[in-house]
């Protein structure tokens, strides 16, 4: 069953299109990573799915219903980000208790245990917490709510590295014990990739790739060697990325669908073939130019 279905989903703010006719489905009980650069439209997309924003055209269905202003979707969805606003007059402990009353599957014991583990002060107010502590608190609510659709937009921003690791581990254990559909947005794919089953990569409001993390890791190969040899080899092959890496050396990234013969040719040309990490593939695919940042400094 698909929990989220988008067809030609489009969102405009005034005249600028933030989401361009995006179509995809997210299956039940999978962890999907929503990956994209700053300003790619991740947050807008998530807010539309969570029912916080109207879409402009196309179609979006969450639990088979339009999420905007929808009680069924609200009751079964939690959206965690670092702009969550909580009542100023309630302490953290009171906030936890109140939050619990909104969600049917709320696990208060888990919330308290995580609260203790991450050394949050029950009498503190949300507004007085540091950015990392706010993220931690919000994430505890996200985990304890046990919502069938759990959306987390950059949940670890501001957290220190130990807390991030703990949080991801907690998320995995919770997911194994109580499977649910999770969408996790991040610009640090390296950090979350082991947790994910699928990746939805977006670039400038458009869907770039939607595949399993294992296919993404196999998506591309890199070739490194003398510039003229690399040039010779990639002639007629579409490159994802091309970069000078020093005196007369180049590095090119192409889709991993070359024939054995072509790979053999590369070897004959003295080129080294390497795998490309999922993080690198995403950053090359979402880069404006094929030369990356080096292109900016290349005035020659």
């Amino acid at each position: 069953m698909n929990v989220v279905v988008c067809n030609n989903l489009t969102k405009q703010y005034g005249r600028s299109k933030v989401i361009h006719s995006m179509s995809f489905q997210l299956a039940e009980n999978k962890i999907t990573g929503l990956i994209g650069r700053n300003g790619a439209g991740k947050t807008t997309l998530l807010k539309i799915i969570a029912g916080y924003l109207h879409h402009s055209s196309g179609d979006v269905q969450v639990f088979s219903e339009n999420p905007f202003n929808n009680l069924k979707v609200s009751a079964n969805t939690i959206f965690i980000d670092n702009e969550m606003s909580f009542s100023q007059g309630l302490t953290l402990k009171e906030l936890l208790e109140t939050a619990g009353s909104f969600y049917q599957n709320w696990d208060h014991d888990l919330a308290l245990r995580l609260f203790d583990y991450f050394s949050l002060d029950p009498k503190q107010f949300h507004g007085n917490l540091s950015k990392g502590m706010q993220s931690t608190f919000n994430s505890i609510i996200g985990l304890a709510a046990r919502c069938p659709l759990t959306i987390m937009d950059e949940p670890t921003s501001g957290m220190d590295s130990g807390t991030r690791k703990d949080f991801y581990r907690a998320l995995l254990k919770e997911y194994i014990a109580h499977p649910r559909t999770i969408i996790l947005s991040s610009h640090l794919l390296d950090e979350v990739e082991d947790l994910l089953e699928d990746v939805l990569l977006i670039k400038s409001g458009e869907k770039c790739l939607h595949l399993s993390i294992d296919s993404l890791r196999d998506y591309a190969i890199g070739v490194r060697g003398k510039t003229e040899k690399v040039q010779e080899w990639i002639d007629r092959i579409e490159t994802i990325h091309l970069q000078d890496i020093g005196a007369n050396l180049s590095y090119a990234v192409v889709k991993n669908d070359r024939s054995i013969k072509e790979l053999e040719d590369a070897r004959q040309l003295g080129l080294e073939i390497t795998s490309v990490s999922a993080e690198d593939i995403c950053s090359y695919l979402t880069s404006k130019t094929k030369g990356g940042i080096d292109h900016v400094f290349n005035r020659g």
């Binding site: 999978k30 962890i31 991801y168 399993s212």
Partner: peptide
């Protein structure tokens, strides 16, 4: 044990 997605 390996801290990875169950599908993996």
């Amino acid at each position: 044990m390996f801290n990875v997605n169950p599908a993996t």
